[in-house]
């Protein structure tokens, strides 16, 4: 763990792996909910870091956090969301080829994976989901699409994600869902908030 002061009001904590980020993020949420963290306006996990923005004394907070014993995350931790998916994505065959399986096997592999929202970014409500083992990581498309439909389930690198709205994108599209990923009038606005666990089921096969 490395702590880096960011300006006068923020602290960036750098870790070695996505698992360590998830564990520290969960610990930060626990302590914040227990009133034991002090004022923090934004708690922003990312690929290998957690940013604490809007804090009083970043250097002192960093020194405190560096002394924490952070327990590893257990697979049962965090709210669980189930998302029904139709496996009708235009890149389904390509992903199956990269995985060395038939397209019909993709739903089972994805369905057996417990994903976790590592962090959000790119667009409101766009979660970066970890959980796929390294052998199932696939590259981005050589040519990004100018418009990926809302609800597309997509893969790129170590991440899976669902586009909350139509936008350009270079991820491999394997399916689609009618689930509403982002609705600012809803509480919570984002279906995929950091720390949420996600299972994808095959629509119509419940």
């Amino acid at each position: 763990m490395r702590t880096l002061v960011v300006g006068s009001q923020a602290l960036l904590i750098e870790l070695d792996s996505a698992d360590e980020v998830a564990a520290l993020h969960a610990e930060l949420l626990r302590r914040r909910d227990a009133g034991a963290l002090g004022p923090v306006r934004d708690l922003v996990p990312a690929a290998r870091t957690v940013l604490l923005d809007g804090v009083r004394d970043p250097a002192a907070l960093g020194a405190r956090i560096a002394r924490w014993e952070v327990p590893p995350l257990t697979s049962g931790e965090g709210p669980l969301v189930t998302v029904p998916v139709r496996y009708d994505g235009p890149d389904l065959a390509e992903v199956a080829r990269l995985w060395g399986v038939g397209p019909g096997e993709v739903p089972g592999i994805v369905g057996a994976t417990l994903f976790r929202v590592a962090f959000c970014g790119f667009a409101p409500g766009f979660g970066y989901l970890t959980g796929l083992p390294e052998r199932l990581h696939v590259p981005r498309r050589d040519t990004p699409r100018t418009a990926v439909p809302a609800g597309s389930l997509a893969l790129a690198g170590e991440y899976a994600g669902v586009y909350p709205r139509s936008s350009p994108g270079g991820w491999q599209l394997i399916g689609s869902t009618d689930a509403v990923l982002w609705d600012p009038a809803r509480e919570p606005a984002a279906l995929f908030a950091p720390g949420v666990r996600v299972r994808f089921t095959e629509a119509g096969r419940d």
Partner: peptide, 8 residues
């Protein structure tokens, strides 16, 4: 402010 973790 306060919604950065959701990508806002």
């Amino acid at each position: 402010p306060g919604h950065a973790h959701l990508g806002v």
